[in-house]
Amino acid sequence: MQGYTQPVYPFAAIVGQDEMKRALLLAAVDPQIGGVLIMGHRGTAKSTAVRALAQLLPPPATNGLYAEMTVEERLVRFPLFAESESAARKKAGAPMVDLPLSATEDRVVGSLDIEAALKRGEKAFQPGLLARAHGGFLYIDEVNLLEDHLVDLLLDVAASGVNIVEREGFSVRHPARFVLVGSGNPEEGDLRPQLLDRFGLYTQVETITDVRLRMELVRRNEAFLNDPQAFLEQWEPAQRELRETIARARERLEAVTVPDRVLKRIVELCLRLNIDGHRGEMTLTRAARALAALQDRQRVTAGDVRRVAVMSLRHRLRRDPLEEIDSGEKIQQAMQGLLVGR
Protein backbone atom coordinates (compact mmCIF):
# COMPACT_ATOMS: atom_id res chain seq x y z
CA MET A 1 0.00 0.00 0.00
CA GLN A 2 1.50 3.25 -1.05
CA GLY A 3 0.29 6.67 -0.21
CA TYR A 4 0.13 9.09 2.63
CA THR A 5 -1.33 9.03 6.06
CA GLN A 6 -3.78 11.37 7.65
CA PRO A 7 -4.18 11.90 11.38
CA VAL A 8 -6.49 9.44 13.10
CA TYR A 9 -8.82 10.58 15.84
CA PRO A 10 -7.69 8.94 19.10
CA PHE A 11 -9.84 6.14 20.50
CA ALA A 12 -9.60 7.47 24.03
CA ALA A 13 -11.17 10.76 22.97
CA ILE A 14 -14.35 9.24 21.54
CA VAL A 15 -17.30 10.61 23.50
CA GLY A 16 -19.90 8.15 24.82
CA GLN A 17 -20.84 5.04 22.80
CA ASP A 18 -19.57 2.81 25.59
CA GLU A 19 -21.03 -0.41 24.23
CA MET A 20 -19.35 0.05 20.88
CA LYS A 21 -16.01 0.89 22.46
CA ARG A 22 -16.25 -2.09 24.76
CA ALA A 23 -17.04 -4.44 21.88
CA LEU A 24 -14.07 -3.19 19.90
CA LEU A 25 -11.73 -3.54 22.86
CA LEU A 26 -12.94 -7.09 23.50
CA ALA A 27 -12.28 -8.00 19.87
CA ALA A 28 -8.80 -6.54 20.21
CA VAL A 29 -8.11 -8.58 23.32
CA ASP A 30 -9.38 -11.83 21.88
CA PRO A 31 -9.57 -11.96 18.08
CA GLN A 32 -11.18 -15.38 18.37
CA ILE A 33 -14.39 -13.71 19.50
CA GLY A 34 -14.86 -13.33 15.79
CA GLY A 35 -15.09 -9.68 14.99
CA VAL A 36 -17.51 -6.86 15.52
CA LEU A 37 -20.37 -5.47 13.54
CA ILE A 38 -21.36 -1.90 14.35
CA MET A 39 -24.69 -0.75 13.04
CA GLY A 40 -26.30 2.60 13.59
CA HIS A 41 -27.21 5.97 12.26
CA ARG A 42 -24.84 8.05 10.23
CA GLY A 43 -22.63 10.37 12.18
CA THR A 44 -22.27 8.18 15.25
CA ALA A 45 -18.49 7.71 15.09
CA LYS A 46 -18.66 4.13 13.82
CA SER A 47 -15.81 4.21 11.34
CA THR A 48 -13.91 6.70 13.47
CA ALA A 49 -13.88 4.15 16.29
CA VAL A 50 -12.70 1.29 14.08
CA ARG A 51 -9.89 3.30 12.57
CA ALA A 52 -8.96 4.50 16.02
CA LEU A 53 -8.82 0.93 17.30
CA ALA A 54 -6.13 0.07 14.78
CA GLN A 55 -3.87 2.57 16.53
CA LEU A 56 -4.20 0.68 19.79
CA LEU A 57 -3.35 -2.78 18.59
CA PRO A 58 0.03 -4.21 19.43
CA PRO A 59 2.11 -5.25 16.44
CA PRO A 60 1.24 -8.82 15.48
CA ALA A 61 3.57 -11.48 16.83
CA THR A 62 3.59 -13.54 13.69
CA ASN A 63 3.36 -11.20 10.84
CA GLY A 64 0.65 -12.70 8.75
CA LEU A 65 0.79 -15.16 6.00
CA TYR A 66 4.50 -15.31 5.47
CA ALA A 67 5.16 -16.86 8.84
CA GLU A 68 3.01 -19.86 8.10
CA MET A 69 4.69 -20.84 4.88
CA THR A 70 7.58 -23.15 4.27
CA VAL A 71 10.68 -21.71 2.71
CA GLU A 72 9.97 -23.59 -0.44
CA GLU A 73 6.53 -22.14 -0.72
CA ARG A 74 7.88 -18.68 -0.17
CA LEU A 75 10.47 -18.92 -2.86
CA VAL A 76 8.73 -20.94 -5.47
CA ARG A 77 5.14 -20.02 -5.19
CA PHE A 78 5.07 -16.48 -3.97
CA PRO A 79 8.25 -14.75 -4.97
CA LEU A 80 6.68 -11.41 -4.24
CA PHE A 81 5.59 -12.18 -0.75
CA ALA A 82 9.03 -11.53 0.64
CA GLU A 83 8.82 -8.01 -0.63
CA SER A 84 5.40 -7.22 0.70
CA GLU A 85 6.28 -8.86 3.97
CA SER A 86 9.21 -6.60 4.71
CA ALA A 87 7.11 -3.62 3.77
CA ALA A 88 4.48 -4.74 6.22
CA ARG A 89 7.06 -5.20 8.95
CA LYS A 90 8.15 -1.63 8.72
CA LYS A 91 4.68 -0.45 9.50
CA ALA A 92 3.79 -0.28 13.11
CA GLY A 93 0.55 -1.71 14.43
CA ALA A 94 -1.53 -4.74 13.63
CA PRO A 95 -2.90 -5.18 10.17
CA MET A 96 -6.26 -3.45 9.96
CA VAL A 97 -6.95 -3.83 6.29
CA ASP A 98 -9.58 -1.71 4.58
CA LEU A 99 -11.84 -3.40 2.09
CA PRO A 100 -13.26 -0.47 0.13
CA LEU A 101 -16.63 -0.80 -1.56
CA SER A 102 -14.99 -0.14 -4.89
CA ALA A 103 -12.51 -3.01 -4.58
CA THR A 104 -12.35 -5.42 -7.49
CA GLU A 105 -12.33 -9.15 -7.03
CA ASP A 106 -8.76 -9.56 -8.26
CA ARG A 107 -7.49 -7.23 -5.51
CA VAL A 108 -9.45 -9.06 -2.86
CA VAL A 109 -8.27 -12.58 -3.66
CA GLY A 110 -5.03 -11.78 -5.42
CA SER A 111 -4.05 -12.17 -9.06
CA LEU A 112 -1.33 -11.90 -11.65
CA ASP A 113 1.11 -9.10 -10.96
CA ILE A 114 0.68 -7.05 -14.09
CA GLU A 115 3.70 -4.89 -13.55
CA ALA A 116 6.04 -7.81 -13.03
CA ALA A 117 4.54 -9.51 -16.04
CA LEU A 118 5.02 -6.58 -18.32
CA LYS A 119 8.27 -5.15 -17.06
CA ARG A 120 10.16 -8.32 -16.37
CA GLY A 121 8.11 -10.93 -18.15
CA GLU A 122 7.58 -12.70 -14.84
CA LYS A 123 4.49 -14.57 -14.00
CA ALA A 124 4.12 -13.60 -10.38
CA PHE A 125 1.27 -13.72 -7.95
CA GLN A 126 0.25 -10.47 -6.36
CA PRO A 127 -1.43 -11.25 -3.05
CA GLY A 128 -4.75 -9.60 -2.38
CA LEU A 129 -6.42 -8.01 0.60
CA LEU A 130 -7.32 -11.36 2.11
CA ALA A 131 -3.65 -12.29 2.31
CA ARG A 132 -2.81 -8.93 3.77
CA ALA A 133 -5.51 -9.25 6.41
CA HIS A 134 -4.40 -12.73 7.45
CA GLY A 135 -3.77 -12.70 11.16
CA GLY A 136 -5.38 -9.32 11.52
CA PHE A 137 -8.57 -7.41 10.91
CA LEU A 138 -10.49 -6.85 7.72
CA TYR A 139 -12.60 -3.72 7.93
CA ILE A 140 -15.57 -3.08 5.69
CA ASP A 141 -17.23 0.28 6.06
CA GLU A 142 -20.83 0.33 4.78
CA VAL A 143 -20.73 -3.44 4.85
CA ASN A 144 -24.39 -3.70 3.91
CA LEU A 145 -23.69 -1.92 0.65
CA LEU A 146 -20.89 -4.26 -0.40
CA GLU A 147 -21.56 -5.90 -3.74
CA ASP A 148 -23.04 -9.36 -3.53
CA HIS A 149 -20.27 -11.13 -5.38
CA LEU A 150 -17.71 -9.82 -2.90
CA VAL A 151 -19.88 -10.89 0.02
CA ASP A 152 -20.14 -14.42 -1.41
CA LEU A 153 -16.40 -14.53 -1.72
CA LEU A 154 -15.83 -13.28 1.82
CA LEU A 155 -18.27 -15.81 3.24
CA ASP A 156 -16.45 -18.66 1.52
CA VAL A 157 -13.06 -17.61 2.78
CA ALA A 158 -14.23 -16.67 6.26
CA ALA A 159 -15.84 -20.08 6.68
CA SER A 160 -12.88 -22.13 5.46
CA GLY A 161 -9.97 -19.93 6.52
CA VAL A 162 -8.35 -20.67 3.18
CA ASN A 163 -8.22 -18.52 0.11
CA ILE A 164 -8.17 -20.50 -3.11
CA VAL A 165 -7.24 -18.60 -6.22
CA GLU A 166 -7.83 -20.21 -9.55
CA ARG A 167 -7.40 -17.60 -12.19
CA GLU A 168 -5.08 -16.45 -14.93
CA GLY A 169 -3.28 -19.76 -14.84
CA PHE A 170 -2.59 -19.52 -11.11
CA SER A 171 -3.56 -22.17 -8.72
CA VAL A 172 -2.79 -20.78 -5.30
CA ARG A 173 -4.03 -21.69 -1.85
CA HIS A 174 -3.09 -19.75 1.17
CA PRO A 175 -4.44 -19.47 4.69
CA ALA A 176 -6.61 -16.42 5.22
CA ARG A 177 -7.82 -16.12 8.76
CA PHE A 178 -8.95 -12.70 9.70
CA VAL A 179 -11.34 -10.95 12.00
CA LEU A 180 -14.18 -9.21 10.24
CA VAL A 181 -15.08 -5.74 11.39
CA GLY A 182 -17.99 -4.08 9.70
CA SER A 183 -20.06 -0.98 10.07
CA GLY A 184 -23.11 0.39 8.40
CA ASN A 185 -26.52 1.94 8.67
CA PRO A 186 -29.26 -0.71 8.82
CA GLU A 187 -31.75 1.60 7.19
CA GLU A 188 -29.80 1.66 3.97
CA GLY A 189 -30.10 -2.01 3.28
CA ASP A 190 -30.03 -5.19 5.26
CA LEU A 191 -27.18 -7.54 5.84
CA ARG A 192 -27.57 -11.07 4.64
CA PRO A 193 -28.14 -13.44 7.57
CA GLN A 194 -25.19 -15.59 6.50
CA LEU A 195 -22.89 -12.62 6.79
CA LEU A 196 -24.47 -11.46 10.02
CA ASP A 197 -23.64 -14.81 11.51
CA ARG A 198 -19.95 -14.30 10.74
CA PHE A 199 -19.62 -11.51 13.24
CA GLY A 200 -18.97 -12.40 16.86
CA LEU A 201 -20.34 -9.23 18.42
CA TYR A 202 -23.05 -6.95 17.20
CA THR A 203 -23.34 -3.53 18.64
CA GLN A 204 -25.95 -0.97 17.91
CA VAL A 205 -24.99 2.65 18.14
CA GLU A 206 -27.46 5.40 18.66
CA THR A 207 -27.36 9.12 18.48
CA ILE A 208 -26.09 10.64 21.70
CA THR A 209 -28.88 12.77 23.10
CA ASP A 210 -27.32 13.96 26.34
CA VAL A 211 -26.76 17.65 25.77
CA ARG A 212 -23.57 17.86 27.77
CA LEU A 213 -22.04 14.93 25.95
CA ARG A 214 -23.07 16.47 22.66
CA MET A 215 -21.34 19.69 23.61
CA GLU A 216 -18.19 17.85 24.58
CA LEU A 217 -18.30 15.98 21.30
CA VAL A 218 -18.45 19.18 19.30
CA ARG A 219 -15.63 20.69 21.35
CA ARG A 220 -13.33 17.73 20.81
CA ASN A 221 -14.13 17.52 17.11
CA GLU A 222 -13.34 21.17 16.69
CA ALA A 223 -10.13 20.85 18.63
CA PHE A 224 -9.03 17.88 16.53
CA LEU A 225 -9.81 19.67 13.28
CA ASN A 226 -8.11 22.88 14.31
CA ASP A 227 -4.88 21.27 15.43
CA PRO A 228 -4.71 17.50 15.07
CA GLN A 229 -1.14 17.29 16.30
CA ALA A 230 -1.80 19.11 19.54
CA PHE A 231 -4.95 17.10 20.09
CA LEU A 232 -3.11 13.81 19.61
CA GLU A 233 -0.43 14.88 22.02
CA GLN A 234 -3.01 15.86 24.57
CA TRP A 235 -4.58 12.41 24.38
CA GLU A 236 -1.39 10.41 24.13
CA PRO A 237 -1.23 9.51 27.85
CA ALA A 238 -4.77 8.11 27.76
CA GLN A 239 -3.97 6.27 24.55
CA ARG A 240 -0.84 4.77 26.03
CA GLU A 241 -2.79 3.57 29.00
CA LEU A 242 -5.36 1.91 26.76
CA ARG A 243 -2.62 0.29 24.70
CA GLU A 244 -1.04 -1.12 27.82
CA THR A 245 -4.37 -2.34 29.14
CA ILE A 246 -5.01 -4.24 25.93
CA ALA A 247 -1.53 -5.72 25.87
CA ARG A 248 -1.84 -6.83 29.51
CA ALA A 249 -5.27 -8.29 28.91
CA ARG A 250 -3.96 -10.26 25.95
CA GLU A 251 -1.27 -11.80 28.08
CA ARG A 252 -3.65 -12.53 30.90
CA LEU A 253 -6.43 -13.93 28.72
CA GLU A 254 -5.30 -17.56 28.73
CA ALA A 255 -5.19 -17.59 32.51
CA VAL A 256 -8.75 -16.35 32.99
CA THR A 257 -11.06 -19.12 34.14
CA VAL A 258 -14.80 -19.51 33.86
CA PRO A 259 -16.39 -21.07 36.95
CA ASP A 260 -18.92 -23.82 36.22
CA ARG A 261 -21.63 -21.80 37.93
CA VAL A 262 -21.14 -18.97 35.44
CA LEU A 263 -20.85 -21.33 32.50
CA LYS A 264 -24.13 -22.90 33.46
CA ARG A 265 -25.68 -19.47 33.51
CA ILE A 266 -24.44 -18.78 30.01
CA VAL A 267 -25.89 -22.00 28.64
CA GLU A 268 -29.20 -21.45 30.42
CA LEU A 269 -29.47 -18.00 28.96
CA CYS A 270 -28.90 -19.26 25.43
CA LEU A 271 -31.42 -22.04 25.95
CA ARG A 272 -33.99 -19.66 27.29
CA LEU A 273 -33.53 -17.42 24.27
CA ASN A 274 -33.89 -20.37 21.86
CA ILE A 275 -30.62 -19.67 20.14
CA ASP A 276 -29.74 -22.16 17.44
CA GLY A 277 -26.30 -23.72 17.39
CA HIS A 278 -23.44 -23.27 19.80
CA ARG A 279 -21.90 -20.14 18.42
CA GLY A 280 -23.92 -18.05 20.83
CA GLU A 281 -22.62 -19.54 24.05
CA MET A 282 -19.09 -19.82 22.72
CA THR A 283 -18.96 -16.17 21.77
CA LEU A 284 -20.57 -15.12 25.01
CA THR A 285 -18.05 -17.09 27.05
CA ARG A 286 -15.11 -15.69 25.11
CA ALA A 287 -16.41 -12.15 25.37
CA ALA A 288 -16.94 -12.49 29.12
CA ARG A 289 -13.41 -13.81 29.53
CA ALA A 290 -11.98 -10.98 27.49
CA LEU A 291 -13.86 -8.50 29.67
CA ALA A 292 -12.46 -10.08 32.83
CA ALA A 293 -8.98 -9.90 31.32
CA LEU A 294 -9.46 -6.24 30.43
CA GLN A 295 -10.37 -5.53 34.03
CA ASP A 296 -7.42 -7.41 35.34
CA ARG A 297 -9.36 -10.25 36.94
CA GLN A 298 -8.64 -13.98 36.99
CA ARG A 299 -12.20 -15.26 37.02
CA VAL A 300 -15.27 -14.49 35.01
CA THR A 301 -18.22 -13.29 37.04
CA ALA A 302 -21.94 -13.23 36.36
CA GLY A 303 -21.55 -9.47 36.02
CA ASP A 304 -19.16 -9.92 33.09
CA VAL A 305 -21.69 -12.11 31.38
CA ARG A 306 -24.41 -9.59 31.92
CA ARG A 307 -22.39 -6.83 30.38
CA VAL A 308 -21.53 -8.65 27.18
CA ALA A 309 -24.67 -10.75 26.70
CA VAL A 310 -26.55 -8.28 24.54
CA MET A 311 -23.72 -7.67 22.10
CA SER A 312 -22.90 -11.38 21.85
CA LEU A 313 -26.44 -12.60 21.30
CA ARG A 314 -28.41 -9.77 19.75
CA HIS A 315 -28.00 -10.92 16.16
CA ARG A 316 -28.58 -14.58 16.93
CA LEU A 317 -32.16 -14.39 18.12
CA ARG A 318 -34.82 -15.62 15.79
CA ARG A 319 -36.44 -12.55 14.47
CA ASP A 320 -40.09 -11.94 14.82
CA PRO A 321 -40.73 -9.15 12.39
CA LEU A 322 -43.49 -7.34 14.23
CA GLU A 323 -42.19 -7.67 17.73
CA GLU A 324 -42.32 -4.36 19.49
CA ILE A 325 -39.45 -5.00 21.82
CA ASP A 326 -35.87 -4.82 20.70
CA SER A 327 -33.67 -7.93 20.77
CA GLY A 328 -31.48 -6.26 23.36
CA GLU A 329 -34.40 -5.84 25.72
CA LYS A 330 -35.44 -9.43 25.16
CA ILE A 331 -32.00 -10.57 26.27
CA GLN A 332 -32.13 -8.29 29.29
CA GLN A 333 -35.49 -9.74 30.23
CA ALA A 334 -34.24 -13.28 29.87
CA MET A 335 -31.34 -12.46 32.18
CA GLN A 336 -33.72 -10.94 34.71
CA GLY A 337 -35.81 -14.08 34.50
CA LEU A 338 -32.81 -16.22 35.27
CA LEU A 339 -32.01 -14.17 38.34
CA VAL A 340 -35.54 -14.38 39.65
CA GLY A 341 -35.73 -18.08 38.91
CA ARG A 342 -32.95 -18.78 41.31
Binding site: Q2, G3, D98, S102, T104, D106, R107, L112
Partner: peptide, 14 residues
Protein backbone atom coordinates in the same frame (compact mmCIF):
# COMPACT_ATOMS: atom_id res chain seq x y z
CA UNK B 1 -9.47 9.68 1.25
CA UNK B 2 -9.79 7.31 -1.65
CA UNK B 3 -8.75 3.79 -0.90
CA UNK B 4 -8.02 2.21 -4.24
CA UNK B 5 -7.89 -1.56 -4.52
CA UNK B 6 -8.53 -2.23 -8.16
CA UNK B 7 -6.99 -4.07 -11.07
CA UNK B 8 -3.69 -4.75 -9.42
CA UNK B 9 -3.47 -1.30 -7.89
CA UNK B 10 -3.31 -0.67 -4.20
CA UNK B 11 -2.97 2.90 -3.05
CA UNK B 12 -4.53 5.76 -1.16
CA UNK B 13 -5.12 9.32 -2.22
CA UNK B 14 -6.23 12.24 -0.13
Amino acid sequence: EVCLEREGLSCRYP
